[in-house]
Design a protein around this nucleic acid. Structure first.
Length: 464
RNA sequence: GGCGGCGUAGCCAAGUGGUAAGGCAGAGGUCUGCAAAACCUUUAUCCGUCGGUUCGAUUCCGACCGCCGCCUCCA
């Protein structure tokens, strides 16, 4: 039984899709005005784990993630860059999608852009207008919180007294109530990107696009809405208000929020110099697999401390998993099965699922896998892994990696005549007990990133 | 000020009302010509501090200390 924490109820609930076997989920995507950073990708990796585990469980998944390609910071930076909106956002959109690919994050089924859904958004505003949930001021359209009594349920914030206080209205727009939020923004400058609508020229407020696009692609009620914890308020609170005020239906069943990460024990920020993009880390020599492993190694709902040491550790952990997988793949096993091996494999599979079933507890799931790693390595040392065990173990690796997505394809035994020849020379030297020469060859290969292992089955090599 | 979360070995971290998973790093060992890989042993008499409830608490309650987040754009 898959249990998932729902921010709305603050409890782990048994997950059941609204519609038989289909899970409809939405994830708040990036605002494309800069490269994504490692904190962003923690969220997207977590959402990816969720979607992959749903598929592991046999559900069909319809997953939508928006691209916010019109917004205040975008306008600010595109002007500074002297580029058109489209030109500016297309660049960072592409970079974002590339990072997704590098981190082996599956592409959502639909990746809609805000600027391509202006009509859906204006229709939603009209619907709210007809219901008397809005008011206009200075050419902008606002949502009236007083028309939605349930406001604040998701975040648990009591806004009545609070927001009326000091920190109100950073916005230059006039609002009737400090808690109200803008649906449609009138242009401040004539050269701002703007679209014509029934209620005048302007651009969408931030919250509007997610409501309009999620409902377009997933329906007025859907299963899971994902995002970072910082989006709980006000973004998701406002999405609920405008969506439910328009439809009268429950907008989302389960709200899934991913915790922030820290970097080297501190909040990540550009001023602290601990602000990493994926490309930064790749430049430091860490592969995207390793980054992904570290990001998913702690449960999504805890504040993970992301460190460079942690990346090194993640690299070692990952190598250990791959070593076992390769060892199994290369094994020429006798027919049959050995009980200790097969029990280890079965326990890993059930332990993995048990961990994941418990609100995607990846730490517990990984622990189950590492138990198997130890047991199978021992069994291999003792020659107790037979053909059926070998196949079952490789199958389990494949299954868990369909969720974790860190192991990559099984590397084929590589053939390289030059390396083979050097290994043969080294083995000849070893037979003649000319170890100095043998070690020289080994060091030479290591310098080229080739690691040698002398095993009872002969000398094996792999790339480091 | 309001609300929420966290504090477990050198590091990352799971977890439970009955006495501490897993990973990384370190040390010792087995194997090896030496390595590598792998395995074994070892590293928290104790889970921020102080009280309380309980036969028993790291796990529940309270206070305190420290850290983080939200309350404003933010993954």
């Amino acid at each position: 039984m898959f249990r998932l924490k729902n921010t709305l109820t603050r409890t782990k609930e048994e997950f059941k899709p609204l519609e038989d076997n289909l899970v409809r989920m939405y994830a708040c995507g990036p605002t494309v005005y800069d490269y994504g950073h490692i904190g962003n990708f923690r969220t997207f990796v977590a959402v990816d784990i969720l979607r992959r585990y749903l598929k592991y469980l046999g559900y069909r998944v319809q997953h939508v993630m928006n691209i916010t390609d019109v917004e205040d910071k975008i306008i600010r930076d595109m002007k500074a860059a002297g580029k058109s909106l489209r030109e500016f956002t297309e660049f960072y959109t592409q970079e974002f999608l590339d990072d997704l690919d590098r981190l082996n994050i599956e592409r959502p089924e639909v990746i809609p852009r805000a600027t391509e859904h202006i009509s859906e958004m204006s229709e939603l505003v009209e619907r709210l207008q007809e219901g008397g949930k809005t008011y206009a001021s200075d050419g902008s359209v606002y949502f009236s919180i007083s028309s939605f009594p349930q406001y604040g349920r998701l975040s648990g914030l009591k806004l009545e007294g609070n927001l009326a206080g000091a920190r109100v209205d950073v916005d230059e727009y006039d609002k009737a109530d400090a808690r109200d939020f803008v649906l449609w923004k009138a242009p401040k400058d004539p050269d701002e990107p703007s679209w014509e609508t029934e209620f005048g020229p302007g651009r969408p407020g931030w919250h509007l696009e997610c409501s309009a696009m999620s409902m377009k692609y997933l329906g007025e009620s859907f299963d899971i809405h994902c995002g970072g914890v910082d989006l709980i308020f006000p973004h998701h609170e406002n999405e609920i208000a405008q969506s439910e005020a328009a439809t009268g239906k429950t907008f989302v069943h389960t709200w899934f929020h991913v915790e922030f990460l820290q970097v080297e024990g501190e909040r990540m920020s550009k001023s602290k110099g601990n602000f990493y993009t994926v490309r930064d880390l790749v430049d430091k020599g860490f592969s995207p697999d390793v980054i992904r492993y570290l990001l998913l190694s702690a449960p999504y709902n805890t504040q993970l401390n992301f460190t460079i040491d942690g990346l090194r550790g993640a690299a070692s952990s990952l190598e250990r998993l791959r070593n076992l997988r390769r060892r199994l793949a290369e094994l020429a096993a006798a027919e049959g099965s050995d009980s200790s091996a097969i029990v280890a494999v079965k326990n890993a599979e059930s332990g993995f699922a048990a961990g994941m079933d418990d609100d995607l507890n990846t730490s517990a799931a990984l622990a189950a896998i590492f138990d198997m790693v130890r047991e199978l390595n021992t069994a291999l040392d003792e020659g107790k892994v037979l053909e059926d065990d070998r196949k079952a173990a490789l199958e389990v690796f494949k299954k868990i990696d369909s969720v974790l997505g860190v192991l990559g394809p099984l590397e084929k035994p590589m053939l390289d005549p030059e390396i083979e020849s050097l290994i043969e020379q080294r083995n000849m030297a070893r037979r003649e007990r000319k170890f100095a020469r043998a070690d020289e060859i080994r060091a030479e290969l290591l310098a080229r990133g080739i690691v040698l292992e002398d095993t009872p089955q002969g000398t094996k090599w792999r790339r480091k």
